[in-house]
Amino acid sequence: MNSKEGKELICIVCPNGCRLNAAMGEDGQLSVTGNKCKRGEKFAQAELTNPTRSLTTTVRTSFSTMPWLPVRTDGEIPKKLIGDALKELQSVLIEKNLRCGEVVLTDLAGTGINVIAASDL
């Protein structure tokens, strides 16, 4: 699987899970095959240059009825920063009631992405 043959990827944008083949042409243009929609192309581009993922986890609360609150990033963050992001979230403690969608933490791991509550608390 060198660059001429292209890279095999699976698009994770929707449940279709298209099998993509992404090849970088000599002109530096990316050619993607196997995608059923436009989003596959964008995904492949990112995947080859700066792969990103959304992150979901739980953070500690001070409520005994729900000691952990599910949260997620409100966008995707670089894959390589997921470790740092988790470490940052590890120290978060929620002490007030939140509604689903409210921001729990801003600028996660310096990415500019916020972390939001994924459930009411």
């Binding site: 699987m1 990827l9 894959k79």
Partner: peptide
Amino acid sequence: NGAEQENGAEQENGTPQE
């Protein structure tokens, strides 16, 4: 430990995908 693994699973030489 988990974070290291996460970084290790990174893109360089395309290992994980391959």
